[in-house]
Design a binder for these strands. Structure first.
Lengths: 227, 227
DNA sequence: ATAGAGTATTGATTTATATCAATTGGATTA
DNA sequence: TAATCCAATTGATATAAATCAATACTCTAT
C-alpha cells in the first residue's frame, strides 16, 4: 500500500474536505495509516483516548464489552467516518471498542492535533459534530430496539439494518458469525439460529451459510414495527 | 417569580459563565423562563428541535418512549444543565423526552441563537460539548447496565445512582413511583416491589413508602458488580 | 483424503422475568 | 366517616429466552 497524501486521498471523510491546505498538512504530519485484519481491535474500550480514528475502507464493529465478558454490538462502520466517541470532549477514555470485521484501512490522528483544527475551523467542527451526533442518534435507536422489542422484532431490525444501512442491497454476505449477530440483536447464538430458521420456513428470507437474501421486506418491516 | 436577568442569575449552567456581556444579553433577549409542574412534559421525543433547555431548578427525567407505550427512563436531571440531545447538530428533532418530576424552573433558548453563540465563543462551545458528552457517556453506562445485568444488579445500580448522583445522600425520598423506578431499572413494577422487599429483608436497605435508606452500601455495590 | 477445530444447528430443559389476579394501604373527596 | 380511587404489594401462573447437550457441517492443515 503506497502512502497517499491526505490532500489527494479520495477515501477521507467528508468533514476533512472543509480543511484548508495548511490544516490538512498539519493532520498529515500527525497521522499514521494502519491496516487492521479481521478480528483485530482498533479501539479498546476504557483505554486512554489518544487518537481519533478516521475509518477509510473495510468493515468494523462498534461494541461495548460487559464485565461478564458479554459483548454488545452497537453498530457497523462500512464507510468513511471519523470515530472517537464522547471521550474526546469528556474523560479522554474510549467508551466503546472498535474491531475490524474485514481487512480495514484507517488513519489514526493525534487527538490534540485534531482538537487544534476543530477549534480553529468552524465549518469542519460543525461537519464533524453532525457526524458525531448522527452516530449518537443511531445508538439511541439501537437502545430503543434492544430494550423495547422482543427477539423477532430485534432480528428483523438487525437484518434490515444490514440490508439498508450497510450493504444497500437485499442480498448480502453477512460479515458476522451467528454469535456476533446475536450480540447485535441482543440474543444468544442459538436463538439466532432458531429465528433465522423460522424466517426461512416462512419464506421471509433465504439463508445459506453467511449468505442472506431478504425475500419479503414488507413483512419483515411489519415484524419490526409490531412492538 | 420575578424575572431575573441572565447576568445576575445564579442558577444558570456553568457553561454560560464563559459568555461575554453582549452574548449573555443576546441569549437573554431570546429566552423564556417557564415553570413546569410534576408530570408536565418539557421536551417531547420526536418533535421539532426549536429550543435548548437550560434546566435550572427542580427534578426531571430523561426518557425514551417506545412504540408500545413502554417508557424507558434514561436519566435524572437534578442540577443545572443545558439539555438538547444529538438533534441539535443532527436532524433537528428531539431524540428523547424530558418530563418534570417535581416543580421545575427552566429557560428555553432559541436554538438558532444558541448556535450563533456556540459558533463564535469557543470557550463556551467547549464547555457545552464537555457537558453534552458527559451526558452521552452516562447513556452508555445505562446501556451497559440495562443490557448486561439482571434484575438485582440493575436495581442496585438504580438505587446507588439515586444516592450518589442525584441526592448525594444515602437516605432520600424517591421522586419516582414504583412504575417509574421499574422504567429506570428495566423491569416491571411488580418486580420492583419484590426486589425492594428482598433487599429490605436482607437489611441492605430500608423502605417506607417513597423513603429509602441505604444501609449496606458495600454489599449493594457488590451486587451491582456481580455481572 | 483425513483429522481436527471451530462454528452452526436442533432439541430438551431450566430460569428469569412478565403478566395476571387479588388484596392491601394511603390519600382525597363527598 | 364513608366512599372512591390509585399505587403498592404479594402470590400464582405463563412465557420468552437462555443454557445445556448432542450432532452436523465447514474449513484448514497435514
Amino acid at each position: 500500500m503506497e502512502d497517499v497524501k491526505c490532500n489527494g486521498c479520495h477515501l477521507k471523510c467528508d468533514s476533512f474536505k472543509f480543511l484548508t491546505k495548511d490544516e490538512l498538512e498539519l493532520i498529515e504530519a500527525n497521522r499514521s495509516t494502519v491496516v487492521f485484519r479481521k478480528g483485530e481491535k482498533i479501539i479498546r474500550q476504557g483505554s486512554i483516548f489518544k487518537e481519533m480514528v478516521s475509518f477509510n475502507q473495510g468493515l468494523a464493529k462498534i461494541h461495548i464489552e460487559g464485565t461478564g465478558g458479554k459483548d454488545l454490538l452497537l453498530g457497523i462502520i462500512s464507510s468513511s467516518e471519523i470515530i472517537g466517541g464522547p471521550g474526546l470532549f469528556h474523560d479522554k477514555r474510549y467508551s466503546f471498542s472498535l474491531t475490524a470485521l474485514t481487512t480495514s484501512r484507517i488513519c489514526l490522528i493525534d487527538s490534540e492535533i485534531f482538537m487544534q483544527v476543530f477549534k480553529t475551523n468552524y465549518l469542519f467542527a460543525e461537519s464533524f459534530l453532525r457526524e458525531f451526533s448522527r452516530r449518537y442518534n443511531d445508538f439511541f435507536q439501537r437502545f430503543l430496539s434492544l430494550t423495547q422489542k422482543q427477539m423477532h422484532g430485534r432480528m428483523a431490525d438487525a437484518l434490515l439494518f444490514m440490508a439498508d444501512s450497510v450493504f444497500n442491497a437485499d442480498s448480502f454476505d453477512l460479515p458476522l458469525s451467528r454469535q456476533e449477530l446475536g450480540e447485535f440483536a441482543g440474543m444468544s447464538k442459538e436463538s439466532v439460529c432458531r429465528i433465522l430458521k423460522e424466517f426461512k420456513d416462512e419464506k421471509l428470507i433465504n439463508t445459506n451459510g453467511q449468505k442472506i437474501d431478504i425475500l419479503k421486506k414488507d413483512l419483515l418491516c411489519r415484524i419490526l414495527e409490531a412492538i
